[in-house]
Amino acid sequence: MRTKKLLITNTWFLAIALVLVLTGLFYQTASAQDTAPTDDEVNAIAKQLFCPVCENTPLDVCPTEACRQWRELIRQMLAEGKTEQEIKDYFVANYGARVLSEPPRTGFNWLVYLVPPVLILAGAFALFNAFKEWTKPKSAEAGSGQGEEAGSSSDEDDYIQRLEEELKNRK
């Protein structure tokens, strides 16, 4: 009687243990699937990088086998808990800064960010000055060169008069 009770207890114990183990395994698998990085998460980083081999092709759209492996590497690093910056740093350390879609804002790279706005501002300033110069002489001439203008218009009138006379004579 006592042995039978012990057997039943052991069976129950084993069944509960089995259920617990299976539940644990199921939970582990499910949580691993939940945390697996999505394609969007991988591509969000991949599009900030360029294929190191086939230059000028962003990594998220590059169709080669090597690019697929690099995207898988990004997925793996994300799954390991690496941040976006850490992943980009890894790519720069291995393949150089040329893989970045935007040059890092350090050292001489600052020229890329500073020179164009400076040139645009300088251009705008030059244009502003040029417009000012183009409008200024007209008003100045209007004031100072009235006699000259009158002279030239009278020359023109004489010419027209002569032309009309010549035409009349021909008729």
């Binding site: 081999v53 086998e65 090597a66 492996q69 690099w70 898988e72 590497l73 393949y95």
Partner: peptide, 9 residues
């Protein structure tokens, strides 16, 4: 010297 490659490759 392995030129521009993935670790897996």
């Amino acid at each position: 010297v392995d030129y521009v490659d993935t670790p897996e490759g």
